[in-house]
Simulated scan of single mutants.
Amino acid sequence: MTILLFQTLLYPPPSSFFVTIMSILSCLSLANGGYMETKGKHMQYSKFFNAAALKKDKVQETMLGSRDGMLLLYTPAFLVGLASFAIFGNQDLRFIMLILVLTIHFLKRVLEVLFVHKYSGSMALETAITICSSYTISTGTMIYAQYLSQEHNKPTIDLKYVGIVLFIIGIVGNFYHHHILSNLRTKDNREYKIPKGGLFDLVICPHYLFEIIEFIGVSCIAQTTYALAFTLGTMFYLTGRSYATLEWYLLKFGEKFGSGVKALIPYAF
């Protein structure tokens, strides 16, 4: 029954050892990253940079300004998406839609870095390179897997238009809550505050919730095993990250923090 369902919703896995291995590695590595977040072993960026640095021995690290680090994270993946329009010409609508949404996703990230986010710290170069490599390789692999899938019959159920709707909901919701976070900080005060507005009254990471919705949309557009594996891994990672974020806010603000606020899913988790 499960196999039949997968055959109905997904293209058959491409005959590519690289894509098969990357599907497994992407899902497992992201899931492990989410698990490590819940155990206090954070990726060293954002509010968790100083927390992680305090736990480490004093080791000389190459540091980047937060803005430069965040640009390094997203720009190569954006360029991969942009270049794909020229590399893969004369493809079907689904393929073009996939490249378009991935390019828009990372273009939005770059524009947010330049014009929306406010910064108060640094980022380790090692962390920036690790995350940048993950985004760039996963973007290229997703596009390549889509290219290989075109030699197979299409899934019985076409989800690409559902995927577009979910992607739009996700990217708009993600931007809206990023904008709320940005407005918490002023030029003279870059301290972290308890966010209010939007879904922040219900969950501490609504921007992660909408990012998950966004990538569910991407996987519906692609309908490939790699896109599904990457989306599942992203869900696991952001779930772990949101749990760690909730713990961080509880530790920092204590009783000032709303007791009913969840990590990721309103009223549930």
Rank of each mutant, 00 (worst) to 15 (best):
S134P: 06
Q91N: 05
F85Q: 05
H117G: 07
Y144V: 00
D68V: 12
I96M: 14
T103D: 06
Y119R: 03
L64Q: 05
G121V: 07
G121A: 12
F106W: 14
F95W: 13
R109D: 06
D68L: 13
I131C: 01
L79M: 15
V113P: 00
E112P: 09
T141K: 03
L98V: 08
Y135E: 02
L72I: 12
I137M: 13
Q60P: 11
T139W: 01
F115A: 04
I104K: 02
R94H: 14
F106L: 08
Y74F: 15
Q91L: 04
G69R: 00
T139M: 05
V116M: 13
T141F: 09
I104E: 01
G89R: 11
F95G: 10
I87Y: 10
T75P: 01
L114H: 03
L111F: 08
A124F: 10
S84A: 11
L125M: 14
I143P: 00
R67Q: 14
H117D: 07
P76T: 07
L73W: 12
T127K: 03
L98R: 04
T127M: 07
K118V: 14
L125D: 11
T136Y: 10
I143L: 00
A128D: 02
S133G: 15
I99Y: 03
S122V: 10
A83F: 10
L114F: 05
M70Y: 11
H105P: 11
H105N: 12
L102A: 06
F95E: 13
G89H: 10
A124D: 09
D92F: 09
L71H: 03
F85D: 06
Q60C: 13
Y135C: 01
M63G: 07
T103G: 06
E126D: 12
S134H: 11
I143M: 00
I131M: 04
T62C: 13
T62I: 14
S122T: 13
V110D: 12
L93C: 12
